[in-house]
Structures are given as C-alpha cells and as structure tokens.
Write a protein that binds this DNA or RNA. Structure first.
Lengths: 97, 97
DNA sequence: ACCTATTTTATTTTATATGATAAAGGGGAA
DNA sequence: TTCCCCTTTATCATATAAAATAAAATAGGT
C-alpha cells in the first residue's frame, strides 16, 4: 500500500463516509455489494480506506447509496464554498466544462 | 474502455478542469508531468477523459496544479451546497469523519 | 456457552491503470 | 518549405484494483 499522507487521508475520509451512509440505509456489505456491483471484500477494504480506488468504483457506490459524488469529496468544515469558480480570488477558473 | 454515462461524464468534466487549470498556469504536459509524477501520455489521456483514474493520481495532480481535490468534483451550477451535511433534509449525514 | 449474521482476511485470477519509450500528428514562426 | 514545440497515439512491461472464492475473525443476540 503505502501512499502519501494526502492520499491516505482521503481514502479514510471517503471510506468513513461510505460506511456511515451504508449504515444509515441499514445495508450490510452483502446488500451494498448487490446494489453497487463491487464484491463484499472489496467494499470492506474500501470502507476502511485501504485501497486506492478507481473513480468508476466510487461512482457506482454513490449511485447505490443515493448520494452525489461531490458529497464524498466535500470539505469537512461547513464554511468553504465548493462549487466551480468562474474566475475567482483564488486565482483559477475551472468552470465551465 | 466503455463506461456508464455517469463515469464518462465525470471523466470528461475532470479532464477538462485539469486541462483548463494547466493552461491557466501556462504549463505544458511535459512540465505538469514533472510536477505531478505522471507521464505525458498518461496526462494526455486523463485530460481527454479517456481513463478511469485512480484517486491517488488525481490527488497528485491537484497538488501539482495547486487546487484542492473538492474543486475537481464540484458541481457545475454555482447554487448547490457542497460541504458535508451533518444531518440534513437530503436524508443523510456524512459528517463527521 | 451457542448460534447467526456480518465483517475481515487470505489467495488466486483477471482486468486495467500507469510507466517507459518511441513514433506520429499539428500548429506557428522563420 | 523546414524547424520547433506540443500533443496524441501506439506498444510493451509493471503495478495494482477488483473479482471470485473460501476461511477466519467479530459482533450481537439468546
């Protein structure tokens, strides 16, 4: 495994959010497995932040959990903006696609 | 290749955002390659949305481009909130990690 | 203690992202 | 035109995500 601290942090944050949401829905790993198309062992590994997951896998999971992808990557503090800036004080302009 | 429409869309959106940001910084693929650790061909493929990237690759890119990961995944419309809800009307509670 | 459901861990195989490298394409500028 | 820079495409090797499966832990109930 062994990733940089940023990668490790994001893997754990995302894994925690997935697990929390799964519990909210009252789903077992087995049930989420059916809904998402990932196997139970894979889900266990992802939820514990032990895998450098591919984007498609996360997207399938968000669909199964009925949340949007940006939620998984949202900042923790409720303060900051998180929509695409169209020319901002931060000095970049990502929108529009 | 061949992904579902959600995956294809996100790959293109993220690729476009990366390329736009790279241009903003006046970087060539070669220069971004050095900064991010990905090879030039890989960057070309990612920027055109033709790869199912791993999360670690995106994180290295955001660092090289000096943007935050949530920006890459931000919704297009400037309206919606995008921070972690702590118990919301949407019916889920992802925070805290 | 037992029983059951759930989760974790381990192993093997398959699919694919990524690296390394080379070659080809595409504009501009001279 | 030729040169130069940048990007795309192609090929092969390697690393690893993910599937499939089984087995071993763990958790909660009773």
């Amino acid at each position: 495994m062994t990733w940089g601290p940023d990668v490790a942090n994001w893997n754990i944050v995302i894994g925690n959010r997935i697990r929390k949401r799964r519990k909210e829905l009252g789903l077992s790993l087995e049930e989420l497995s059916v809904l998402s198309g990932s196997t139970v062992p894979t889900l266990s590994i992802i939820e514990r932040g032990k895998r450098d997951v591919k984007l498609s896998t996360l997207i399938a999971l968000t669909a199964a959990l009925r949340i949007e992808l940006p939620i998984l990557f949202a900042r923790k503090d409720g303060s900051e903006k998180n929509t695409v800036p169209s020319s901002t004080s931060e000095g970049y302009d990502l929108g529009d696609d």
